[in-house]
């Protein structure tokens, strides 16, 4: 009986620790790598993350895993994120510019349609039909810096880890296709 309650107390302590580790930004990028989780919570950190994800669910949050490049547990990144997307008015009041989001949405859709890699100059040329040059340069640089996009040494743009973490790309593509049909009908 005593062992059971001490196990429970230990689990609660570890879940609390997991929440603190995830919610406080440590480095430049949000999220915590698998190996760091193991260091903070022990080898059974995945179970603790599962419990935490259920605990934060009533608050509209979830723990989300983004697989690393090599697919190992250590390279995975764990993040605390919104379970459901924010409403339009919530997003607007957070001070995000519509133009910036439109640039990002169009770029993600464009890159996905080109098998996940496209020359930056091609993206810029495509976006120039809708946005001024300075806005494109500014937004692309910012999204590369924030991890939503990746740019390699050959000037090719790829989808960044943060887009994989925060954006449901399938929903985005579906919405773009369906909205375009509505726009065409009007």
């Amino acid at each position: 009986m005593e062992t059971e309650s001490s196990d429970r107390a230990l689990l609660e302590r570890k879940v609390r620790r997991a929440f603190q580790v995830l919610v406080l930004q440590r480095g430049r990028n949000p999220g915590v790598k698998g190996w760091e989780m193991k260091r903070h919570l022990g080898r059974d950190y995945r179970k603790i993350i599962e419990v935490l994800s259920e605990d934060v669910s009533p608050m509209g949050l979830e723990v989300y895993e983004v697989k690393g490049a090599d697919g190992t547990d250590d390279s995975s990144r764990f993040l605390l994120r919104f379970r459901e997307p924010p409403t339009i008015s919530e997003a607007e009041t957070s001070g995000i510019r519509i133009d910036d989001l439109a640039v990002l949405a169009a770029t993600i859709a464009f890159i996905n349609s080109k098998q996940s890699r496209v020359a930056r100059r091609e993206v810029e040329q495509f976006l120039r039909e809708k946005f001024p040059k300075w806005r494109i340069d500014y937004s692309l640089d910012r999204y590369v810096k924030r991890g939503y996009l990746e740019q390699d040494d050959r000037g090719m743009l790829h989808i960044g880890w943060r887009t994989h973490a925060e954006v449901d790309e399938k929903t985005l593509m579906t919405l773009i296709l369906s909205r375009a049909q509505e726009a065409a009908k009007k």
Partner: peptide, 12 residues
């Protein structure tokens, strides 16, 4: 709007 509806921002 399409972006926002498919977006799950990180809470940190």
């Amino acid at each position: 709007e399409a972006f926002i509806k498919s977006w799950h921002p990180v809470a940190q």
